[in-house]
Design a protein around this nucleic acid. Structure first.
Length: 909
RNA sequence: GGGAGUAUAGCUCAGCUGGUUCAGAGCGCCUGCCUUACAAGCAGGAGGUCACUGGUUCGAACCCUGUUACUCCCACCA
């Protein structure tokens, strides 16, 4: 069979992914094995794959595939998140394109369209994940609004309400005037913005004295109900008990004194607008001020007046009614300037809250919302992270986590939307009051209404729940652990093993899942949290649609192969570090796939000797030590890889694997055992090579699932050929069909580190250094690698087992041990061993001398520093014996080396 | 304003308990090679005052002071 010289990932990747799915290799059922569970951070159902997902899911897949190969029952559960605000926005947009206004629809009609949209366009991202090679158990695909998840959410709401942990109250919330809903504190992004600070004149009622108040939001003066100064501020003591007139509005408001005011800021006088600022609201509560909400929900002015409005106030309210808040700001300033009520305007930079979803400027707004009491939940969630029941990788995120939980505020969970779990609260009018009934469904609510209030005239709360109120149950609800807490699945799969997520949702999601896990299972939801970095572009900017600096992951996969992209991402992504992504790192991954592919081509091309006599004994001897060395080396690197995985150092584990394959296997091992042109390879070495190569594919498989599966299969075919009478007709052998239909690298056992012999490794290193020395000499003398040379070795410390390798790979004629220096030869040192290479051509004596002198100077300087240390009494007395012994060894080595260099210099004459 | 983190080669990063090979790796770069697995390759090579400062120590990239720069989180002084 002919193999192309370039590896083509496309067909290979498609073929194997289909194979894995068809064979159900990703599917998990509870059994006697140790479970390894990962739940996917559910992407928005509206989402498309971006680089952050690529990184995150690559990491999950690596861990899941490895766990599976370690003999665990790996279960990676995929799903999507209904993302109420984002999805509702998309549906509204789609409706608008069809000429349908959302407001013309009933709730049920709207929901029908939304579900249609979800079925048609939602979940693209899950299909894209398949291209990446994600080994999710697709049979378990869930959605935060599917029946099980929906019902779980409702049950939890009812339960927490009954426990007194959910309440409804009127609070200042973050209002998104575009999405027309409240959002939680965590969904507000503060951005620096360059605005103005406006200094406005407030005249004292009935006098022509005035004070100046600084504000960034002059449009809110329509809702001013006081001006506040610091009680100790001597500039304003004369104002005590006075009233001032809100400029342009004509409303007289009291001057109040409170220590909240910062005397240094602006003029030290603060206007109070209780309806539109959280701090003003608090002051308003304290002093019993009227709260005038001047905005409509969409951020336009509503023309509402305070109690006992003046004529001026009526006019002002009417004048601005219907205007957008920002247009109003400009208009008011023009009007005030005309009236001479503006003292000055300064440039000012401050932080303005924006909605995470719509980017609209958040409007603090007073409204009735539902909240979760966080205090008790937070305490438990903090404890399990503090005591390392849950470990964070990297651990530095514990600080962030602690800080948030120690300063936690109640969680606003109601959203003024339709797409989501509708809050299971019903209102009933009884005894002249509105009573609240919280129940699992309408029927129950009605029953309660009839029992308690004698009526079934109930109406359900219009709001839905925050999407995170579904997400926080994810590890529980995926296994139906809320509705059926004793079912086999939840008992088997919970707690999950590792959670892989980005640090920006540590509060939204991670912390709250921990709370829910503790509340509903008395157990943490996962043992480890791996925080990925944020994917940035070359310039360090976050990747975003607006900037257009994010490559399309699918295009990348087409270009470099999923394996190539996976490897590129992982190589530069240590836990918690941001990943400055540059497409070119995928090249390294693609090149690596190609390298492995070509190693396969080489191995497959070898003819296997029919009998031992057909191969030279010299080559057989080399092969023997080569196999021995490669086995030791593999064990050594496996130890490293295992350690890296234990510490979640995935990029290091990958790099170690990469070097093991490229350097140790391809550059050294294969070169050692490679038969001379036209020669066959002995059967034992060939078998060993296939075995080693196969195991290398296993080691690499979690990182590069496709290429390793492909090559592993081809290697098994080679293996089969060795065992059957008619290798040329392997494809008709029954085992061949079985191999291709029943076996997968995914089910093989990951090789484990075993005891390895350091001596073999050290002997090989000496041989490698000698080869490098000889090559170096050739290269520096401009000689062709084809020029064969002899090597004389003096005072060698290695066993010489690899001399055959030195001859083969160094193109050395003979390796001979000598007792004294060799005249007329170039020399180099391997440790304290002197190596001489006689040259047929004339040696440049001066150049050699210069080189030797430089080496000598370095060695002498090194010795001097060692001697200084050893001559220092404090060191000899203070340092541990082992350290001193090391210094003595350094001294001996340096002395040997110096003596040798001097001898070589003398030999030059 | 409060807190955390980072600073090591051109780039991205390792460097564990202070002590051989402590100054490393990959990529990139330079030189020479189309050597029949691979030019997506092979062989060889050059590159760093470990941000700066002071200290602790026999000994510091590593521990402590301070400075500077960058990043992130929290707060939201109008």
């Amino acid at each position: 069979m002919e193999l192309a010289s370039k590896y083509d990932p496309r067909s290979v990747e498609e073929k194997w992914y289909q194979f894995w799915v068809e064979k159900g290799l990703f599917h998990s059922e509870p059994d006697g094995r140790v479970p390894y569970t990962v739940v996917i951070p559910p992407p928005n159902v509206t989402g498309v794959l971006h680089m952050g997902h690529m990184l995150n899911n690559t990491i999950q897949d690596v861990l899941v595939r490895r766990a599976r190969m370690m003999g665990k029952n790996a279960c990676w559960v995929p799903g999507t998140d209904h993302a109420s605000i984002a999805t509702e926005a998309k549906v509204v947009k789609m409706l608008a394109e069809r000429g349908i206004d959302k407001r013309s629809l009933t709730r049920d009609e709207f929901m029908k369209y939304a579900w249609e949209w979800k079925e048609q366009y939602g979940g693209i991202i899950l299909k894209q994940l398949r291209k990446l090679g994600a080994s999710c158990d697709w049979e378990r695909t869930a959605f935060t609004m599917d029946p099980v998840r929906y019902e779980s959410v409702i049950r939890v709401f009812v339960d927490l309400y009954n426990k007194g942990l959910i309440y409804r109250g009127v609070r200042m919330v973050n209002w998104d005037p575009v999405a027309l809903t409240a959002v939680s504190d965590e969904e507000v992004i503060y951005k620096e913005s360059h605005g103005k600070l406006f200094y406005l004149k407030y005249f004292v009622e009935g006098e022509d004295r005035y004070i100046v108040v600084a504000t960034t939001r002059p449009e809110t003066i329509l809702g001013d109900t006081a001006v506040c100064v610091h009680p100790d501020d001597e500039r304003y003591t004369w104002l005590k008990g006075k009233r001032v007139v809100v400029p342009g509005v004509g409303r007289a408001v009291p001057v109040i004194m409170d220590e909240y005011v910062d005397r240094e800021f602006g003029t030290g006088a603060l206007k109070i607008t209780p309806a539109h600022d959280i701090n003003d609201y608090n002051i308003g509560m304290k002093y019993g001020l009227e709260s005038i909400d001047i905005f409509n929900d969409n951020g336009t002015l509503n023309g509402v007046l305070g109690s006992n409005p003046t004529e001026a106030e009526r006019q002002a309210a009417a004048r601005y009614a219907g205007m957008d808040r920002f247009a109003c700001r400009k208009q008011i300033m023009r009007d005030l300037e005309e009236q001479g009520l503006v003292e000055k305007i300064e440039d000012y930079t401050n932080n303005v809250g924006h909605s995470e979803r719509t980017d609209a400027v958040i409007e603090p707004k007073l409204s009735a919302q539902w909240f979760v009491k966080m205090e008790g939940l937070a305490a438990k969630a903090l404890e399990v992270v503090e005591n390392d029941t849950i470990q964070f990788h990297p651990a530095k995120f514990k600080n962030t986590y602690r800080h948030w939980l120690e300063n936690i505020k109640d969680w606003c969970i109601s959203r003024q939307l339709w797409w989501g779990q509708r809050i299971p609260a019903w209102y009933v009018e009884a005894n002249g009051r509105v009573e609240t009934i919280v129940a699992l469904n309408e029927d129950e609510a009605k029953k309660i209404a009839i029992e308690k209030y004698g009526t079934d005239a109930i109406r359900q709360d219009e709001d839905v729940l925050d999407t995170w109120f579904s997400s926080w149950l994810w590890p529980l609800s995926l296994f139906d652990g809320i509705r059926n807490p004793d079912n086999d699945e939840i008992r088997y799969y919970y707690p999950t093993a590792d959670l892989i997520t980005a640090p920006d949702i540590i509060f939204f999601w991670v912390a709250r899942m921990i709370m829910a896990g503790e509340e509903y299972r008395g157990q943490v939801p996962f043992r480890n949290v791996y925080f990925t970095g944020i994917v940035r572009d070359k310039l360090g900017r976050k990747m975003s649609k607006q900037l257009g600096n994010s490559p399309d992951p699918i295009e990348l996969i087409d270009k470099y192969g999923a394996d190539g992209v996976r490897m590129g991402m992982l190589l530069t992504a240590p836990a918690g570090n941001d990943l400055p992504f540059d497409e070119s790192i995928c090249e390294q991954g693609r090149n690596f796939s190609n390298k492995i592919w070509n190693a396969l081509r080489l191995v497959c091309g070898w003819k296997v000797a029919a009998d031992e006599a057909a191969t030279t004994s010299e080559q057989v001897a080399v092969n023997e030590v080569a196999v021995q060395w490669m086995e030791q080396r593999m064990a050594q690197v496996l130890e490293e890889i295992e350690r890296d995985f234990d510490q979640y150092r995935l990029s290091e584990a990958l790099m170690a694997s990469y070097k093991l394959v490229w350097d140790d296997f391809c550059s050294w091992y294969l070169e050692m055992v490679k038969p001379a042109h036209g020669e066959p390879i002995d059967r034992i070495t060939y078998e060993s090579t296939i075995s080693i190569f196969s195991r290398l594919m296993l080691i690499l498989h979690p990182f590069m699932p496709f290429v390793t599966e492909e090559i592993w299969h081809q290697l098994q075919v080679e293996n089969l050929k060795l065992r059957i009478s008619n290798p040329d007709e392997v494809e008709s052998h029954p085992q061949y069909a079985m191999l291709n239909s029943q076996f997968s690298i995914m089910n093989q056992h990951m090789p484990r580190s075993v005891f390895y012999d350091e001596r073999t490794l050290a002997d090989f290193d000496a041989a490698r250094d000698m080869i490098a020395g000889v090559r170096n000499l050739r290269s520096s003398k401009g000689l062709s690698p084809k020029e064969q040379m002899d090597l004389y070795v003096k005072d060698r410390t290695d066993s010489g087992r690899f001399d055959g390798v030195v001859r083969k790979l160094g193109n050395v004629g003979k390796v001979e041990n000598v007792d004294s220096k060799v005249d007329g030869a170039l020399s180099f040192m391997v440790g304290t061993t002197e190596c001489y290479v006689p040259m047929s051509q004339n040696i440049d004596v001066e150049a050699e001398r210069a080189k030797l002198e430089a080496d000598l100077a370095y060695a002498e300087g090194f010795l001097a520093s060692v001697m200084k240390k050893l001559g220092n009494e404090k060191f000899v007395n203070g340092a541990p014996a082992a350290v001193i012994e090391k210094e003595r060894n350094k001294q001996r080595d340096a002395e040997t080396k110096i003596a040798a260099l001097k001898a070589q210099l003398e030999a030059l004459g």
